[in-house]
């Protein structure tokens, strides 16, 4: 019971304090589930991101389902999903009901002008700790660089990219295995 409550609270916090969705939510998810709760380690966290890419829907929901399932089976994933959804649901509902013009408010706009570059830094910074966690090789760095370029500047879909990278890994693995055998 205690861990279910913790799952709900952690994912509620993630849903409450992340702007922009997608990878903008990554540093906070990492902070909660890897650093603070140690529900998954850094290596599993990266694998979870790869799996989340192959499933449709918001990445944060996929992350919640995975971590919830790993800790407390199906009930855990339901609780974590509810936790991540509830803050957006409540906040947007209030805006839709009462505050349609709040975006034009000068102070709101200034506040968010400060936050936007910070969000970009928060996405970029975990690359260092994650790279260290998986003991990234030179080949890995080149691969990551090519993937980043292809997606950011080539307009290739991340979902297709993930499938291609997985196939590349399989091909390399099978060739190495054959070499050893032969």
């Amino acid at each position: 019971m205690h861990e279910l409550w913790q799952l709900f609270r952690s994912f509620f916090r993630i849903g409450m304090f992340t702007l922009g969705g997608g990878y903008a939510m990554l540093p906070l998810i990492q902070n909660e589930v890897v650093d603070k709760r140690q529900w998954v380690d850094n290596k599993e966290f990266i694998e979870l991101l790869a799996l989340a890419q192959t499933s449709p829907g918001p990445m944060a929901v996929n992350a919640a389902v995975f971590v919830g399932y790993k800790r407390k089976s199906i009930v855990g994933s339901l609780v974590a999903t509810l936790g991540i959804t509830l803050p957006s649901f409540l906040i947007i509902l209030i805006i839709a009901m009462y505050l349609v013009g709040f975006r034009e408010n000068h102070y709101v706009e200034s506040f968010f002008k400060g936050i936007r570059p910070a969000v970009v830094a928060l996405i970029a910074a975990p690359l260092y700790s994650l790279g260290k966690a998986i003991k990234i090789s030179w080949f890995g760095i080149v691969l990551a660089g090519s993937v980043a370029t292809a997606i950011a500047f080539g307009g290739i879909s991340p979902a297709i990219m993930v499938v291609a990278i997985a196939l590349l890994g399989l091909a390399i693995g099978i060739i190495q295995k054959k070499r050893k055998a032969g």
Binding site: G22, Y23, A24, L26, K43, I46, E47, L49, A50, Q53, I123, A124, P126, L127, L130, G131, I134, I136, S137, F139, G140, I141, L143, A144, G145, S146, V147, A148, T149, A150, I151, A152, P158, M161, V162, I165, A166, L168, G169, I172
Partner: peptide, 13 residues
Amino acid sequence: TLRPGILGLIAAA
């Protein structure tokens, strides 16, 4: 390959 590849996805974001 997925582990380093995902870092590329994050960098792209």
